[in-house]
Design a binder for these strands. Structure first.
Lengths: 237, 237
DNA sequence: GCGTTAACGTGGTCTGACCAACCGGAAGGC
DNA sequence: GCCTTCCGGTTGGTCAGACCACGTTAACGC
């Protein structure tokens, strides 16, 4: 037994790099060996090395650059945002993740984030506040407003200090981005809606400032479900 | 402006497939065109096609098989579990995700899941119950017990009906798997701990059955934080 | 000393080749 | 006629080699 299915070449490369990362032989900011060197070291073809590196790149672990010098080569970046977003988007496209589940998960993560913030008076909400100020500007197009809206929510999640939560939240938000934009077209009085959304944002911040976790939960839930309802977007039963 | 960075060949392939999925030209269970055909159709080399397919495979969207017949070729599967787990593991390895954040996220997802279950009397907990029964068996090794423990939690998340939550939960759990196993070694009286864990599982189920969401939250939080504390595992400040 | 140019190292891509696994039908034996 | 065997075709898995684009660096000419 313990019969090993003949390890696929690219998996060997992936495991090698994951091992180097775990053992600390490789860390953020550092460079991987050149592709040709990795190939000969591991006894695989360069194309197999490239398949593994491509996976790492899409998952947001490395960034590749041509030429020479400090910016060239494959460099460990460990930026979770892009990869998570890509994965979620593809899974939704392939019907692995139903939209209502994405929506519901986003909701629960945001509720947690604001409740968490309300319980930590030392949290830094400056970024969220400045985004809210920017949303008060006149002459914002719908797209610009929605971009700031998204930024506000992401900033809140980031303020929670939990990288996994904020990255997941951002990925989920991005995944349903097109649906949110499409829903805006179904809203009759956009100016009134925008004003209400701004007001609701302020309410969320106020609840956090007051240290009232439950109020913050309710406010953020009402804010999100309200928009979904107005825009006629699919929600879980 | 709008100057397009010369689209990388593999990205063309990835976008093409994502588009086909979104437009419904491709769905779960269906087969992608052969690599050589995709290459000539899109005007790229086969190696570029393979890089894109590798990404899709690792992300859990497709399964590839050699030979001919119905099982051969690249088939859309859309099984989110593996890909999510892989991504989280790599991000943790690369220090993109701190372990305490993973732990905290797992906790909040599980709390949501049990609270959600408590509010839905029609939820099907049979799978979770049978796992709990299996944990009562004598002569379970620590590893076997922990595997069943993990299964119990995953089953609970699955019962919530939210695929995103359960897949993320499973991925997070798997990511910290090695830490959990390592922690078990630091526990003095394992039999007593195992008995307590079983009892706590039963309490969680009881709270769900009673429809008491808050009690379920408290029970699952106490269960998880208790183990982490006993095992001396890192938790958020 | 300074500007120009050539060499080199890197990822990005393509092509062609071969292998392994698998299925399906044709050929053969009974 | 039916079963077994074998062969060819299809498909992914992998490798080797080649070429390009890009950016640094060092050598060169003045």
């Amino acid at each position: 037994m313990t019969d090993t299915p003949p390890a696929r070449a690219w998996r060997v490369v992936l495991d090698k790099i994951e091992g180097d990362l775990l053992e600390g032989r490789l860390g953020p900011g550092e460079r991987l060996p050149p592709e040709r060197e990795l190939a000969s070291t591991l006894g695989v073809g360069r194309s197999s090395v490239r398949e593994a590196l491509r996976v790492l790149e899409v998952m947001g672990l490395i960034r590749t650059g041509t030429g020479s010098g400090p910016t060239a080569g494959a460099i460990v970046t460990a930026t979770p945002h892009g990869g998570l977003s890509q994965l979620l988007r593809l899974q939704v496209a392939a019907h692995g993740f139903p939209i209502p589940d994405v929506y519901e998960t986003r909701l629960l993560l945001e509720e947690w984030a604001v409740a968490h913030l309300a319980e930590r008076p030392d949290a830094d909400l400056a970024d969220a506040r400045s985004t809210l100020d920017a949303m008060a500007a006149d002459a914002l197009s719908i797209d610009d407003f929605l971009a700031l809206d998204a930024q506000f929510h992401v900033r809140l999640a980031e303020a929670s200090g939990n990288v996994v939560v904020s990255a997941t939240m951002a990925g989920l938000r991005e995944t349903i981005e097109s649906y949110i934009r499409g829903g805006a077209a179904r809203i009759a009085d956009w100016d009134a809606t925008a004003a209400r959304l701004r007001h609701e944002h302020a309410e969320v911040l106020a609840a956090i400032d007051a240290g009232d976790a439950e109020a913050a939960r309710r406010a953020v839930r009402a804010h999100i479900t309200g928009y979904y309802s107005d825009a006629g977007l699919p929600t879980p039963a």
